[in-house]
Amino acid sequence: MGVIEAFRAAFGADPQTVWRAPGRVNLIGEHTDYNDGFVLPFAVPWGVTAAVSARSDGLVRVLSEQAGDEPVTLERLDDAKGWARYPVGVLAVLGDRVGGGADIALTGDVPQGAGLSSSAALEVAVATALNELYHLDMTPMELALASQKAENNFVGMPCGIMDQAASALSKEGHALFLDCRSLGFRHVPLDLASRGLQILIIDTRAHHELADGEYAKRRAECESAARTLGVASLRDVEDLAAALGRLTGDERKRTMHVVTENHRVEAVIGLLRAGAVPEIGALLNASHLSLRDQFEVTVPELDVAVESAVRGGARGARMTGGGFGGSVIALVADDRVDQVKASVSAAYAERGWTEPRFLPAVAAAGAHRVGF
């Protein structure tokens, strides 16, 4: 059953609008967004579709095809639990502007637990639909910020703006270069196919749950380091050696990662603009090592996937997303894809781990209306 049919079955009428928003892969720029830094994500072909109608009685009814057939009915938004917190959080953030309520049916095909930001896709799909229905005239960036606020305040996940911005703003065939302080952005052509290359997503199938405290702990460490250094955020560190001399322990390591990762983002953009696409592989490798050793957010499944992908012939590889599980991306020549897959699969089999899943990453369009 499709989402429109599910909406009809649950609510007895056609939806007034349908919007789809994608998940994302982050090419480079990890854990820099909440440090006012630079990121370079792109949207993926998988996403969340929201069929929505406005209501006049303040009631909210939400249905997810993946969660079950029975809609959740809420008279108070604060009563939302589980997956319903994400769409309802968007309604809560938009507040009186959507005070009439809504009927919402959701379906998604973002691989769950793979670190491809299904939560941001869900939030942005709902936000864009409500923007149309209630004539809010919000820009895509404003909708991304509202979606981020929903996840921060209603779900309790202190994420930065990257995921929601990528879902709302991405352009097909391009990566999104975003300055997370100014919110300035531009679309950077990501033409891999003409150079015989592709980005391979390796879903490690390792547990991925960022709301369990580790993500928040890393963010708090970055903020504490910035206070010690007397800067607004780690993005403002200019003399890294001097900064590291004033820090100790985990705060020192977190600062080293954030500052060098911002430089890596800028370097990747320079290489892409110069047409030196294969050369970004070395920066992907460096990013992963920093995330492993300085930010300490990898797990064995991620490290083994990266190491075995490079050993199998990938130009470079790194974990993508917040870490603690999820996916690796590998830059691979078209004629090496099977070899890389075999190398990673063999390394997993040797350790008795679940077979990883391999997905081709194509830079897709951001949130858009779906005709029906």
Results as ranks from 00 to 15, higher is better:
A165V: 07
R351Q: 12
T320A: 07
V18C: 13
A232M: 11
V268F: 05
A226D: 07
L122C: 15
G352C: 07
R227F: 07
K81C: 01
L291C: 02
Y34R: 02
G156S: 08
V188L: 10
E296F: 06
R61M: 12
E279K: 14
N262G: 00
G323M: 05
D33V: 05
G99Y: 11
V3E: 10
W83N: 03
I161K: 13
E151L: 12
D36P: 01
S287V: 10
N131M: 09
G230V: 11
G156A: 04
L136W: 07
D103R: 08
I4R: 09
K81G: 04
Y86V: 09
T248E: 14
P278C: 14
A286E: 14
M256L: 14
L40C: 09
V124Q: 12
V370N: 05
A286G: 11
A165D: 12
E355S: 08
E75I: 02
P158Q: 09
D14A: 12
T32F: 04
G245S: 08
R219C: 00
S308T: 13
L74V: 12
E214R: 11
S290C: 06
P360T: 14
F11A: 03
Y215E: 08
A346G: 14
A120G: 15
G371T: 05
R195G: 15
A282N: 01
G275M: 15
M1E: 11
V306Y: 08
M1Q: 13
Q16P: 03
D191A: 15
K217F: 03
H263Y: 02
L178R: 00
